[in-house]
């Protein structure tokens, strides 16, 4: 079994309580052609992407409370954390946080985990308990987007000045 299948199976435990039929239907629709552009927000689930055009294999959307478990699963499968970053979807009043994972061995599989939080109150659990290196990445996401990582040991500005109270990568930021 390829690592991609193993990862899908392992991450499947997060979505076991959801209607699997709904998941399957979504996967079919999205891999068939263009990414769904309708106003419907994307359901939680796994989408297999075309690596040649996208640059990553698995596109996983989960909710905030599943985040620590998901990173544990990936850690046990031998993934390392590449980066954590935010995207400000100001029209939808949401902040998306993307976690990029990759592997050290020759089974190439890149995984992106996306979590969406409301823009006004962005709270996520920290994954520094699993990946120690998430510390700086989370501090950076806090600097740039104001995302608050609950349980983070040292959530102070890293790249911005120590008294910074602004978040420059938010789309409504004015210098």
């Amino acid at each position: 079994m390829s690592i991609q299948q193993t990862t899908i199976q392992a991450l499947g435990e997060l979505f076991s309580d959801q209607a699997s039929a709904e998941n399957g239907a979504e996967k079919e629709a999205e891999t068939g052609g263009e990414v769904d552009k309708s106003d419907q927000p994307r359901q939680n689930g796994i989408i297999e992407q075309d690596y040649r055009t996208k640059g990553f294999h698995l596109d996983v959307k989960i909710s905030a409370d599943q985040l620590v478990r998901a990173s544990q699963i990936l850690f046990e499968l031998g993934y390392f954390l590449e980066s954590i970053t935010g995207v400000d979807w100001i029209k939808e009043e949401q902040l998306e946080t993307d976690y990029d994972f990759s592997r050290y061995d020759f089974d190439l599989c890149r995984v992106v985990i996306r979590v969406r939080t409301p823009r006004t109150d962005p709270h996520l659990p920290t994954i520094t308990t699993v990946y120690t290196g998430a510390n700086w990445h989370e501090r950076e996401a806090h600097d740039f987007f104001g995302i608050i990582f609950d349980g983070h040991p040292h959530l102070i500005p890293l790249l911005l000045p120590e008294d910074a109270d602004f978040h420059p990568l938010l789309k409504d930021f004015k210098a």
């Binding site: 390392f80 954390l81 980066s83 050290y104 990946y131 290196g133």
Partner: peptide, 10 residues
Amino acid sequence: DKDMCQRYGA
């Protein structure tokens, strides 16, 4: 060590 590399993404 390898474990440290994986935890930090070195």
